[in-house]
Design a protein around this nucleic acid. Structure first.
Length: 650
RNA sequence: GCCGACGUAGCUCAGGGGUAGAGCGCUUCCUUGGUAAGGAAGAGGUCACGAGUUCAAUUCUCGUCGUUGGCUCCA
């Protein structure tokens, strides 16, 4: 007999060899019908797996992430079978489940698959699914596994198996199909009722661009047709929040082929929005002891040779700008830190002066690969809300935590709640990728980890993701389609102070090396506005809105009164405009709604007589008639409730 | 940079080897209105750019540029 511990803590006794499904049945018939995957002692198992030792069991249904993973992973097997049957020369490589579905990387040889093939593959998949084939795991010896794939002439699987240890290799069979697989499947193909191939893309074998490129087929599947339909509708909804679409509609920014790719042009409304964001941060930074500085857009090549950036990125970046006289070369600045180092170097500092916090909305230019450009989130010219803090080693921990407070304040003020803090550390296997001394790296990494812990951040650690000069703490936020973007970032740097020979005089009358913190709460104005657009769908917090209210006149007779209202609104510092066109009220409201105007002030005969405005909120709520002063109060209340001022803990 | 898709009016898109269409927007006129589209007329396009095939190319082929889904990259 074995003891099985369930998630609620209860322990049940079963005969050794009992399957996961039997355990589910012992709990309830309904659960047994719905269980599709499980974990035993932390290892993924199948529903048919026989339990032979004591352990704890977690059962998963389609509702669980783990269940979905098993479902999608199993579907990728089905797709692999379909592809192999339809395109006999195709060589399979790997096919995992991902956050929303699954993919399989396939070498189709000479054949070029396209979306025109999708229908055929989907139909084949559903045909296979309807066969209700069981997924069966079996152990194979390394030699048998290698023989199997050598016979199939599949060098990819052979390579995978060669890296596995004998005795630890399993195959999964269903129907006539066999795949190298670690496990984690649903009971049978029959529960896959709806499949949809989403797109195809190139992907390098093992993620290395020096390797051959495979064809990656993305798909998603569901236990019910209705769920697929809902998922596709959700995607359509998400596309409506795409910042590229909203940016165009709300006239915030544009691009021009003539100006060049990846170089955004901010339109008046976008520029005003951006300015409000900048002022918001400047105000907080002033409270937090930052000082604004300004530096030029170019710098001598020598500056970047000193910083080490030239050696690292020089070849793959915008090339030097020449001058009429020979031997002079300047680079567009790809970051502000070297300039700020020289600002620090402009005078001698005492430890009593530190920390110095130099802030600048610095526009930088980076030659991003053309395939990487993406709306406003990945561009070649952008403005960082940058600052560099120069402090003594003793001050590092506290300064770092203060920056975290500032970032949290910024995110909180703008309603970003679903962010992930990511601590990026060195890859210990590849230390040559980084510059700087071992001792400093250890110090910096510990400082970040301590600060993240102490501030109670919900963080993940990513090894190998550090910048080449130091570890960092990034604040990651997802866009409308679930892609993760880095917004705020805080980085510790012991390297640049060394390279620029930055010093301060300590209490011992000796010169010491300061530590530098790079930080940008927004990350960049471009990316931040983009993600903010996708999160709010263009309905920004009132204080950020390009226009907060619009006066809608019932007819041209009230144009004069609308002007009077506008003047009053301006006195209350409310941004407003008037729509005096000879259009119907219905049409004016519709347009204001589509332009996401937060408040509509309707004026006609009644309002003019009483000296009021009739207030309609975006979305339809009718607040009735009121004096402009009363309206101003509503606006101010709303702004004050979302925009708290930054309080530093000293 | 690599693999795939796309590029037609200001915007969203339809079309297709015989020199172009809709809706919205814009202009003008009529209408003077009460909470998500009042009516009419008009202007607006080297069909991204460059070659090639063809009697004829916006349509087919190739290249360039740009956009886009991924991969790789991200100081």
């Amino acid at each position: 007999m074995i003891n099985v511990t369930l998630p609620d803590g209860s322990i049940k006794e079963f005969e050794s060899g009992t399957t996961v499904l039997d355990v589910a049945k012992s709990i309830s018939e309904g659960l047994a019908r719905n269980v599709i995957s499980a974990k035993y002692n932390g290892t993924t198992v199948e529903t048919k797996t026989q339990l032979t030792t004591d352990g704890s069991l977690v059962l998963f249904t389609w509702r669980d992430d783990e269940g979905k993973k098993a479902f999608w992973h199993s579907t990728s097997h089905v797709m692999a079978q379909a592809i192999q049957e339809l395109y006999p020369g195709a060589k399979l490589t790997i096919g995992p489940a991902i956050e929303n579905g699954f993919y399989y990387d396939v070498d189709f040889g000479e054949y070029k698959v396209s979306e025109n093939d999708f229908k055929k593959i989907e139909d084949k998949m559903l045909e296979i699914a309807r066969g209700k084939h069981e997924f069966k795991m079996r152990e194979v010896s390394k030699q048998d596994a290698l023989d199997f794939y050598k016979k199939e002439n599949n060098p990819f699987k052979v390579e995978l198996i060669e890296n596995l240890t004998d005795g630890d290799i399993t195959f999964c069979d269903h129907d006539t199909f066999t795949d190298l697989c670690r496990g984690g499947h649903i009971p049978n193909t029959g529960i896959i009722k709806a499949v949809k191939l989403m797109n195809i893309a190139g992907a390098y074998w093992r993620g290395d661009e020096h390797n051959p490129q495979l064809t990656r087929v993305y798909g998603v599947s569901f236990p019910k047709q209705k769920e697929l339909k809902e998922y596709l509708e959700l995607l359509e909804e998400a596309k409506k929040r795409d910042h590229r679409k909203l940016g165009k509609e709300l006239q915030l920014f544009t691009f021009s082929q003539k100006v060049g790719q990846g170089l955004p042009l901010w339109l008046p409304k976008g520029a005003a929005l951006r300015e409000r964001l900048e002022n918001f941060l400047k105000k907080a930074q002033q409270k937090a002891g930052y000082e604004q500085v300004v530096s030029p857009h170019i710098g001598q090549k020598e500056l970047y040779v000193t910083s080490g950036h030239y050696a690292k990125y020089g070849e793959d970046s915008f090339q030097p700008i020449k001058t009429p006289s020979e031997d002079e070369e300047f680079l567009l600045k790809p970051m502000n830190c070297p300039h700020h180092c020289e600002i620090f170097n402009s005078q001698a500092w005492s430890y009593r002066d530190l920390p110095k916090r130099f802030a600048e909305f610095g526009t930088v230019y980076r030659y991003e690969q053309s395939g990487e450009l993406h709306g406003l989130t990945r561009v070649r010219g952008f403005t960082q809300d940058d600052a560099h803090i120069f402090c003594t080693p003793d001050q590092l921990d506290e300064e770092f935590k203060k920056v975290i407070d500032l970032v949290l304040y910024v995110f909180g003020s703008l309603g970003f709640e679903n962010f992930t803090a990511q601590v990026s550390l060195r890859d210990p296997e590849n230390k040559e990728k980084y510059i700087g001394e071992e001792e400093n790296w250890v110090k910096a990494e510990n400082a970040i980890l301590n600060a993240a812990k102490e501030k109670g951040l919900n963080y993940v650690i990513e090894t190998g993701e550090a910048a080449f000069y130091g570890p960092k703490l990034d604040f990651m936020v997802k866009d409308a389609l679930g892609r993760s973007w880095q917004l705020g970032t805080i980085q510790v740097d012991y390297n640049l102070p060394e390279r620029f020979d930055l010093t301060y005089k300590g209490s011992d009358n000796d010169l010491h090396r300061p530590v530098m913190i790079h930080r940008a709460p927004f990350g960049s104005m471009e990316r931040f506005v983009a993600i903010l657009l996708e999160h709010t769908g263009g309905n920004f917090p009132l204080w950020l809105m390009p226009e907060q209210a619009i006066v809608l006149t019932l007819s041209e007779k009230y144009e004069k009164y609308s002007q009077k209202v506008l003047n009053l609104l301006e006195n209350h510092e409310i941004r407003a405009l008037a729509d005096n066109r000879s259009e119907t009220m219905g049409k004016k409201i519709r347009e204001a709604e589509m332009n996401k105007l937060p408040y509509m002030l309707i004026v006609g005969e009644q309002e003019e007589q009483d000296g009021t405005v009739s207030v309609r909120k975006h979305g339809g709520e009718d607040l009735g008639a009121m004096k402009v002063e009363e309206f101003a109060e509503i606006i101010n209340k709303e702004i004050n409730s979302s925009l708290k001022s930054f309080e530093t803990e000293v």
